[in-house]
Design a protein around this nucleic acid. Structure first.
Lengths: 262, 262
DNA sequence: AAGTGGTCTAGACCACTCT
DNA sequence: GAGTGGTCTAGACCACTTT
């Protein structure tokens, strides 16, 4: 019964713009559960009829909701309440040595355990001069080169995360870090074999709207922000040995950290 | 020299909608540094003139940029490239016992060290039945009550964070946790005095667009997402003793965590 | 073919800021 | 008062989806 939804009338005495009042009504219907995930919002024509306003006014209201991430428009089909993908939880012990299957392997195991179908694509390995922020974190000079390992993670075909690992050339050379398959235990195992005992990681997390390329790579709906997480791995002597720059769909992740009270 | 900016012409052979092409041009000008933070974007009238399109088309383009968080419109003044507030860094050792000045005190000290003017307002203390997600985290039954301590943090008068701490009534009663000034060391000191030795914290972090109330409380510009961080404090025997639910302007924070490699 | 959203035009009037 | 953005109208034509 897509038509059972009853929306209030406009308040002509209100200072609030008409398009905002309309957006408020629909937002409230979603918050109250009168419209649920996947439900169709009344069509533009129906809303014009109900409120007696021009189409552009209705569209403006619907656009507000879309940029809030509450709805998605599907051309030729209608406007729908956004359904949220299952959230993937990243625990802070995911790099403890006892689960040291890095990157791809860990992602595949976790996703299958959670009943999803994982995949990894866009794998690319380049020797490059790193971006300045990366070079700083790796304590590299302006002309030092690194190996950049890029990939994209998907769950049930839906991209959820892109990541680029940067490893100083000095460490990566003559190891499987330079090959698409970095071998058992991933690049961290290769780094340790090279004599750098991993000691700790530092993760810096920002929350922002995606850039255009990121929105495309992650197939993000309008109004979905991203986590931008930069992880630096340090050896026991304090040397930074790897930086991983990842962008994650805000929709798809909960990050979880355990902190000692000490 | 507001007029020194030269924008490309439209590509009539492109499939890309005119308003998107215009948004792309302005976005590129920002990304390339031709327009910097605080600079004025050409007025709607100037853009109409330059591109030879209707005003609504220009407005549509500008709205895209605004919902990406790249620009802000100021009524009667113009559209400006967003300037980003100084970022506040939250390190993962901020609750280590050695800096155990909690909440307000820690915020004030850190902000002053960074050269900002901190303030805290909207302090409210209530005895309530907690939301279900909070009750679950505190292992409470459906009828248990808690003390909810709400406040809002500001830097230079700009709100950056709202927080509500929930402490089970059983723990809070007969302590300064029920008073606006919870005393030296904050509520964690009071909880320990009551015999619960704090052992560790768990922080769950999401990234999403703000609700209406949150956008208002944090005076968020359109297109700014928030961190939603829920921290649970555990005593040595595993008992959860406090949950703090905080919403932070994504603009104003970098969260930083250190993880042992173990 | 009918219904849906996507893009665009060409106006109108209003509210705010600056000089 | 001139310039700016904010709201709203009443159309037009297009592209996609469903029946």
């Amino acid at each position: 019964m897509a038509t059972s939804l009853t929306l209030p009338d406009l308040d002509p005495t209100s200072d609030r713009a008409v398009f905002r009042q309309i957006a408020d009504h629909i937002r409230q219907a979603i918050e109250r559960g009168q419209l649920r995930e996947g439900d169709k919002v009344p069509s533009e024509a129906q809303l014009m009829q109900h409120y007696g306003v021009a189409r552009m006014t209705i569209r403006h209201a619907l656009q507000v909701l879309q940029s809030e991430g509450l709805t998605v428009a599907e051309h030729g089909r209608g406007v729908f309440v956004r359904s949220h993908p299952p959230m993937r939880r990243l625990a802070s012990d995911r790099f403890a040595r006892r689960h040291r299957e890095q990157g791809k392997a860990a992602f595949i195991a976790e996703t299958e355990d959670a009943g999803g179908k994982p995949s990894v694509d866009s794998i690319k390995i380049d020797e490059v001069k790193p971006p300045v922020e990366i070079a700083e974190r790796l304590s590299l000079g302006p002309n030092d080169r690194v190996i950049a390992r890029s990939r994209r993670y998907l769950i049930n075909g839906q991209p959820v995360e892109t990541a680029i690992s940067y490893v100083p050339m000095e460490i990566a050379k003559d190891t499987k870090i330079m090959e698409p398959d970095s071998g058992p235990g991933g690049i961290y195992a290769r780094i340790e074999e090279k004599g750098y005992r991993l000691d700790h990681f530092v993760e810096d997390i920002k929350c922002r709207m995606p850039l255009r390329d990121e929105a495309r790579a992650l197939k993000l709906a309008p109004g979905v922000p991203v986590f931008h997480l930069v992880r630096t791995a340090y050896a026991a002597d304090g040397t930074p040995v790897e930086v991983c720059d990842t962008v994650m769909s805000g929709d798809a992740y909960v990050l979880s950290y355990e902190l000692p009270a000490r």
